[in-house]
C-alpha cells in the first residue's frame, strides 16, 4: 500500500515535469500559428475583457498600493537627488574657489605687468595660513628661502602692495601685512605727487592713513597712492617706487593743515589673499629711487 502511494506520487511528479518539458519543446518547436500559440491567443481574447473589468474594478485599491509604493520610491528618489545635490554643490564650491583663485592670479599678473614688477624676479606663493586676528596682520606663504625669498622683501597681491617678508624658513615665509600697526612706508599720490608716509589706522583693520604729507590740501578723494621709494630718512623703505598701495577713500578735515587726516583704502584685498608675489630681487637703486609723480600706476 505504501509502495503504491509512493510510486503514484513519484509518477505524478514525473508526469507533470515531463508534460511541462513536452509543452516547452512543442511551444519552442512550433510556428506562430501552432496549437499552443493559437491557444494562447484564444485565451488572451477570452481573458482580456475579464482582466480589463477586474483591472477597472480594483483600480482604486491598486492605486492606493501604487501610491504607497510611489511614496517609498519618491523618498528613495529624494534621498538620491539630495545626495546628488550635495555632490554638485561641492563641485560648484570647488569650481568657484578655483575661479576666485584664477581671478586673483590674473589680477596679480596684471599688477606685476602694469607696474613693471617682473624685473624684480617675482616668486608666486600661495597663502597657506593667516592670522586669525581681526586685524589680519600676518600671513604664511608656502614658499621660503629655497625659492630665493629673504626677509624684508616686498610682497604684492591682487591689486597692489600687501606687506613685506618678516620671517623665512626653507619652505615657508611669514609676511607682515600693510595693516600691521608697525607698518610704515613712504608713499606719494600719483596725481600731484604729494609725498608722505602710509601707516595703518589704529584700531581699524583694513584702513590706512596717509601721514606727514607735505601738501595735504592738494590731495583729493579718489587719488591713487603708490610707494615712493626711500624719500624719507626717518622711515627707510623696503619697497621700490611705483607699487600701488591704495586709493584715498575719505579726508577728515581738522583745525589746521596738519590735522587733516587722509584715509586710504588698500588696493589689495588684505582679508582675502590666496596668492601673492614676493619680489625677490630688488636692487638697492630701486629702493632709494623716488617715484615719478607723472607716472600713473595701476592699482
Amino acid at each position: 500500500m505504501y509502495d503504491r502511494t509512493v510510486r503514484r506520487r513519484r509518477l505524478t511528479l514525473a508526469g507533470f515535469v515531463a508534460l511541462s518539458l513536452i509543452l516547452l519543446t512543442v511551444w519552442f518547436g512550433e510556428s506562430a500559428g501552432g496549437v499552443l500559440h493559437s491557444l494562447q491567443r484564444g485565451a488572451l481574447a477570452v481573458l482580456a475583457p475579464v482582466q480589463e473589468g477586474a483591472n477597472r474594478a480594483i483600480a482604486p485599491v491598486r492605486d492606493a498600493f501604487g501610491w504607497a509604493g510611489d511614496t517609498l520610491d519618491a523618498k528613495s528618489e529624494r534621498d538620491k537627488l539630495a545626495r546628488r545635490n550635495r555632490a554638485l554643490e561641492e563641485q560648484v564650491t570647488r569650481q568657484q574657489f578655483q575661479l576666485s583663485e584664477f581671478a586673483q592670479l590674473k589680477a596679480l599678473e596684471q599688477v606685476n605687468a602694469a607696474n613693471d614688477l617682473e624685473r624684480f624676479r617675482p616668486v608666486r606663493a600661495k597663502v597657506i595660513g593667516q592670522s586669525p586676528s581681526l586685524f589680519y596682520s600676518e600671513i604664511i606663504l608656502d614658499r621660503g628661502s629655497s625659492e630665493g625669498i629673504e626677509e624684508d622683501q616686498p610682497v604684492t597681491g591682487a591689486g597692489g602692495l600687501v606687506g613685506r617678508v618678516t620671517n623665512v624658513v626653507g619652505n615657508a615665509a611669514t609676511v607682515t601685512l600693510i595693516t600691521d600697526e608697525e607698518f610704515a612706508a613712504p608713499a606719494r599720490t600719483t596725481r600731484g605727487g604729494v609725498a608722505g608716509t602710509i601707516r595703518p589706522e589704529a584700531g581699524t583693520p583694513g584702513d590706512l592713513v596717509f601721514e606727514f604729507a607735505d601738501k595735504t590740501e592738494e590731495v583729493e578723494e579718489g587719488d591713487r597712492v603708490v610707494s615712493s621709494g626711500s624719500g624719507s630718512v626717518r622711515f627707510p623703505s623696503y619697497f621700490p617706487a611705483g607699487i600701488p598701495i591704495g586709493k584715498v577713500s575719505r579726508i577728515e578735515d581738522g583745525a589746521g593743515e596738519l590735522d587733516r587726516e587722509i584715509h586710504v583704502r588698500p588696493a589689495a584685498d588684505i582679508t582675502n589673499l590666496q596668492y601673492v608675489t614676493v619680489l625677490t630681487s630688488v636692487p638697492e637703486a630701486a629702493l632709494t629711487a623716488t617715484a615719478d609723480p607723472a607716472a600713473g600706476a595701476t592699482p
Binding site: T12, F16, V17, L19, S20, L23, L24, T25, Q40, L47
Partner: peptide, 26 residues
C-alpha cells in the same frame, strides 16, 4: 497538480513560453 495547472494557465494567459511556469510551480 495545482502547481502544474496554475503554471500552465499563467503561461497561456501571459503568452509566455508554455511549460516554464508549470514546471517550476509543479
Amino acid at each position: 497538480a495545482f502547481g502544474f495547472a496554475a503554471g500552465l494557465f499563467l503561461d497561456v494567459a501571459l503568452l509566455q513560453a508554455v511549460g516554464v511556469t508549470s514546471l517550476v510551480y509543479t
